[in-house]
């Protein structure tokens, strides 16, 4: 009984809940599933990190939530519950009222994500005029304000500049200003620092963290860098080849990884405290979604694989020290011992 109570409580506090999301792409190898049965939820004000190697479907998950998947891609199924409604069922015009307003997104490529022929000021005020119905003057004033919020020096001068006049870090700050100007409930950051210098990376991450605390937005932090995760997240979701393979609190996942893939990822981080000469890189590569291995997608790269891994594992709840967690691996299923 206690458990149902806790579950119900969690569900109630969920701000965004994704259930069974599946997204396909039509390619020359036929229809390819890039995101396969993804389910997770985010609470108000929470930071959820999504990690995984390049090509595992992180961006596609984010874009599917925003309904920004375009040809040749298509969201095939699932639900994205937000504010009591399934976003996947909204009309285009209802969805537009949510994008940039309730759910905003920052992209991986700051150099190319801003329109080169519009001033940064006009690109920010455009959002305010659209969603907050501000007039030109008020929107322009708010744009200056937003630039100073994201710590851009001389904002009254910068608003009149074009993206090419700003450095990558500055542009990403502009993107953040643009994303946060309507005080969204959810901020999706798709590898916001991957394209930036290491020193700038830290600044951008702490800026996002800081603004998240101020605005109370829930943040979905997509990254392939576990360092970013350890700096920011409450909860971590590990993706592999279009699926969630492990989920839990940051503490649990980083200190006690359950899935062999998560373990491999953690071993691949260079550590100063441990004096070892070589990094343990996971052998092999993420499979091409067009030619997925049978059963567990990680099986061909997994040192622990057994015969049973040719069948598809289902997610199971596991014991976490600091919160609930799940893992999708045969090792944690009762059949493992007999296999």
């Amino acid at each position: 009984m206690a458990e149902t109570g806790e579950l119900a409580g969690r569900r109630e506090s969920a701000l965004l809940e994704v259930r069974g999301l599946r997204t396909n792409f039509n390619t020359k190898h036929g229809s390819v599933r890039a995101v396969d049965d993804i389910s997770f939820s985010m609470a108000r004000g929470e930071t959820v990190g999504i990690v995984g190697e390049s090509g595992c479907g992180k961006s596609v998950t984010a874009l599917s939530i925003m309904r920004l998947i375009s040809e040749p891609g298509r969201v095939e199924g699932g639900e994205v519950l937000f504010g009591g409604r399934d976003l996947l069922k909204l009309s285009q015009s209802e969805m537009r009222k949510i994008r940039g307003n309730k759910i905003a997104m920052i992209f991986q490529e700051p150099m190319t994500s801003l329109n080169p022929v519009l001033t940064v000021g006009s690109q920010i005020s455009e959002v305010l005029r659209l969603h907050e119905r501000l007039n030109r003057r008020d929107a322009a004033a708010r744009a200056v304000e937003m630039l100073s919020v994201v710590n851009i020096p001389a904002p009254e001068k910068r608003v009149h500049e074009y993206p090419h006049q700003l450095s990558g870090g500055m542009r990403q700050r502009v993107m953040i200003a643009m994303a946060l100007c309507c005080k969204p409930d959810v901020l999706i950051c798709d590898e916001p620092t991957t394209a930036l210098d290491v020193t700038i990376q830290a600044q951008i991450i702490s800026l996002i963290e800081d603004l998240k605390d101020k605005t109370g937005a829930a943040v979905m932090m997509i990254t392939h860098d576990l360092g970013v995760i350890s700096g920011i997240s409450d909860r971590v979701i590990v993706m592999y080849s279009g699926r969630i393979i492990e989920e839990g609190t940051k503490m649990d996942v980083l200190t006690n990884p359950l899935h062999p893939y998560t373990e491999g990822l953690l071993n691949a981080i260079p550590r100063i405290d441990l004096d070892c000469d070589e990094l343990k890189v996971i052998p092999g590569m993420v499979p091409n979604p067009a030619f997925l291995p049978e059963g567990c997608h990680f099986r061909p790269r997994c040192a622990d694989a057994r015969g049973i891994c040719l069948k598809e594992p289902q997610p199971v709840a596991a014991a976490g020290n600091t919160g609930p967690r799940t893992v999708r691996c045969w090792k944690y299923l009762p059949d493992w011992r007999s296999a």
Binding site: N101, M105, V127
Partner: peptide
């Protein structure tokens, strides 16, 4: 197919504005 067009859509702009303002000007 440029990234900034995706950004414009992510802002919630109507397709007409995305095409006539953000795309056509470029």
């Amino acid at each position: 197919s440029q990234d900034y067009i995706r950004t414009a859509r992510a802002k919630g702009l109507a397709e007409r504005v995305v095409i006539l303002k953000h795309a056509l000007k470029n």
